[in-house]
């Protein structure tokens, strides 16, 4: 099947087996291997990308469902020479070790902050209360991204810095 997606701002046309996940389309067809496959079942967050600005698990979505979508992967956020502020914050705070969960964490964090700004609720905040970006709030909202190296405290510190414009 032919699908058209805009990947990191570039229009791409792909002829795909309809069984192809968005993750495999990115990794194997577009050679955007920054998005990682940790479980292929929507359980780890390593494959997190932004589809029309919303964070999704690319492994849990078929590529054909994204015909016409704008997809942003970690490669679209910044490059080694020009890091996105969130990427810089992860580097500064050592918010990763092996680096395999990291692209997913960073994409997720960028979208999470946008969700927070837009007033999306979370179980951390009592009903009716205005959420504040507490550490507990960040932890709750980032719990879909597993880091087996367990860089969790550093990830919270990095996201806080990026959110507060320090990175």
């Amino acid at each position: 099947m032919r699908i058209n997606i805009t990947a990191n701002g570039e229009a791409r046309s792909l002829d795909l087996d309809p069984r192809t996940t968005l993750l495999d389309a990115l990794r194997e067809h577009l050679k955007l291997t920054g998005s990682k496959k940790g479980c292929d079942h929507g359980q780890c967050g390593a494959c997190t990308v932004l589809a029309n600005g919303t964070r999704i698990n690319a492994c849990l979505s078929l590529a054909v469902m994204h015909d016409g979508d704008e997809v942003t992967t970690i490669e679209g956020l910044g490059s080694p020479e020009t890091l996105h502020p969130m990427q810089q914050a992860f580097l500064t705070h050592d918010a990763f070790q092996c680096g395999y969960c990291t692209p997913g964490q960073i994409c997720s964090a960028v979208a999470m902050l946008a969700e927070f700004e837009a007033g999306a609720p979370s179980p951390e905040t009592p009903r009716g209360a205005a959420p504040t970006l507490s550490d507990a709030e960040i932890r709750e909202r980032m719990s879909g991204n597993i880091c087996r190296c367990s860089a969790y405290p550093q990830i919270v510190a990095a996201i806080r810095d990026a959110a507060e414009g320090r990175a």
């Binding site: 990794r27 955007l32 291997t33 920054g34 998005s35 990682k36 496959k37 992967t73 970690i74 490669e75 956020l77 910044g78 490059s79 080694p80 890091l83 990427q87 810089q88 992860f90 580097l91 500064t92 050592d94 990763f96 680096g99 395999y100 990291t102 692209p103 960073i106």
Partner: peptide, 20 residues
């Protein structure tokens, strides 16, 4: 506490792991 040598590659998804 210097930043990781390969950090810029890892945070941009440009460090290729075996399958990549």
């Amino acid at each position: 506490g210097v930043d990781r040598y390969e950090g810029p590659l890892k945070v941009t998804g440009t460090a290729p792991y075996a399958y990549e």
